[in-house]
Design a protein around this nucleic acid. Structure first.
Lengths: 190, 190
DNA sequence: GTTATAGTGTTCGAAATCCAACATTGGTTT
DNA sequence: AAACCAATGTTGGATTTCGAACACTATAAC
């Protein structure tokens, strides 16, 4: 069941090289040969693991999307409840390992593989469900509020992955203020 | 002639893992299994490349000693001539790739493998040859002067490999002053 | 239009690596 | 002393990777 370490190593090497190249040039400009050369892997081995460079991108985007999906519920509850300190600390910890890759992949926008869009879609669904569960007094457009909440969370995520853990002070206050403003028109009857 | 990339990769992986472990604990405490685990390599493969961990250490020390040997003549001439700026810049460039490994290996002192001692021995021989070629007026103990020159150079090297390139300003003046003092008693007739 | 050129994707025998076993050594515990 | 454990070094068959072809496509160059 557990696979051969050689497979783990080659996939790791190919993915690391791929991210390195993506940090230097656009996805379209990168060739399979580039990836193999940078990772000291033969092309025949590349094709034993992936259909093509699109498949490699797909799998990586799917991988990080899945990791994010596992955390979305927790993070969402935190921002609703106002645990901004915990939220920022948790996000930072989650991203610690994957920071570099996620940051680079956020710059890639292919029709069938867009990590940033995936994150945004997941958050938007959460907001829509959350609002649908409330019993509202307001006549404000709820889709607008959902979009606003999503944007705030995405901006926070992008901030965290592109800034050092040391420079996160002061973030909490800003986020909390905006969070309250977003939730302001969601007064419930209950 | 050119060897299979797989060999290059495994030796690189084993050596990187070895340096990582050496940065954490002593050479004696490190087992072959440790190195293999850290590098995702099987033990049988380790033994296909090295006789044992001592052999691995020997080969690495020999490797960096050889690199250093190729540069000793140039660096020696520079310090005699007083090209301290070029010397520091050149040393820094030489070490750029190997800084981490050399720095860690400088802390390992095994009877048959001691990189720091190798560097020192090479420099000392250079000084002794240099002094022997001079026609001296002085009655100062020349071996002492050779040892002093060697120590100054070793200290400079250790400074360069353990400090960032950005923090090298101010080094030149200090080294040049001491260099003149060391050479002071080597007045020649010619 | 044809001629290069660069990238894609495939194939197959050779080479390297893996894995799981094994015997052996040296030190510790009981 | 005996039993144990951790590490060493070795072996052989299974698996993976490599390297060097090959055919194919698309695009640019002449």
């Amino acid at each position: 069941m557990t696979q051969d370490v050689r497979k783990i190593k080659t996939e790791r090497d190919l993915q690391v090289a791929f991210i390195q190249l993506l940090a230097m040039k656009g996805f379209r400009q990168i060739t399979v040969a580039d990836i193999c050369e940078a990772s000291l892997t033969s092309r025949s081995t590349f094709y034993a693991h992936y259909l093509d460079k699109y498949d490699l991108l797909d799998q990586m985007v799917a991988h990080y999307s899945a990791i994010f999906a596992n955390r979305v519920d927790m993070r969402f509850d935190q921002i609703i409840a106002g645990d901004i300190d915990d939220l920022v600390a948790g996000l930072s910890a989650d991203m610690a390992e994957n920071r570099w890759a996620v940051q680079v992949l956020f710059g890639v926008h292919e029709p069938e593989a867009d990590l940033q869009a995936n994150f945004r879609t997941m958050l938007l669904k959460k907001w829509q469900n959350f609002i649908a569960e409330q019993v509202l007094q307001t006549d404000a457009p709820t889709d607008l509020i959902a979009s606003m909440g999503t944007s705030v969370q995405m901006t926070l995520i992008e901030w965290v992955i592109s800034h050092d853990k040391a420079t996160l002070d002061g973030v909490t206050g800003v986020v909390d203020t905006i969070r309250k403003a977003v939730l302001l028109h969601l007064d419930t009857k209950a």
